[in-house]
């Protein structure tokens, strides 16, 4: 988030544009990140279905399942449900 001075922001704590929650990335607090081993993945979309944050994406053209780390919280549910056991939770390095 770019931190603005008090002279640059709307008064009264108001937010003057709609849909701005999109700009708010919430994936910053995870301790472990899920990594998909694509050579094993069968694109069954179990992880996509179970992810409580809709942080798993699927590209229908390439038929490729991936994780959007800007929103993934690192809960590990995808790892648990993957029938191929091809998701590994890896320690997040910062």
């Amino acid at each position: 988030m770019s931190e603005k001075s008090w002279k640059e922001i709307p008064i009264g704590g108001k937010i003057l544009e709609a849909g701005n929650a999109r700009e708010y990335k919430t994936g910053g607090w995870k301790t472990f990140r899920p990594e998909i081993d694509r050579s094993e993945c069968i694109n069954c979309l179990f992880c996509w279905l179970y992810c409580p944050d809709m942080a798993v994406t699927h590209d229908p053209v390439k038929n490729e399942t991936a994780v959007n780390y800007e929103y993934c919280k690192g809960c590990g549910i995808c790892e648990q449900v993957c029938p191929k056991k091809c998701i590994k939770m890896v320690k997040e390095e910062r």
Binding site: M1, E3, K4, S5, W6, I9, P10, I11, G12, G13, K14, I15, L16, E17, A18
Partner: peptide, 28 residues
């Protein structure tokens, strides 16, 4: 200035304002 009923210019009143901007709003 920022009426909620102006549907062409949507505005949010009273969002959560923590350590990042509360101070700036008080300064204003």
């Amino acid at each position: 200035e920022f009426p909620l009923l102006d549907i062409d210019k949507p505005v949010t009143y009273g969002p959560l304002d923590l350590f990042d901007y509360y101070f700036e709003h008080k300064r204003q």
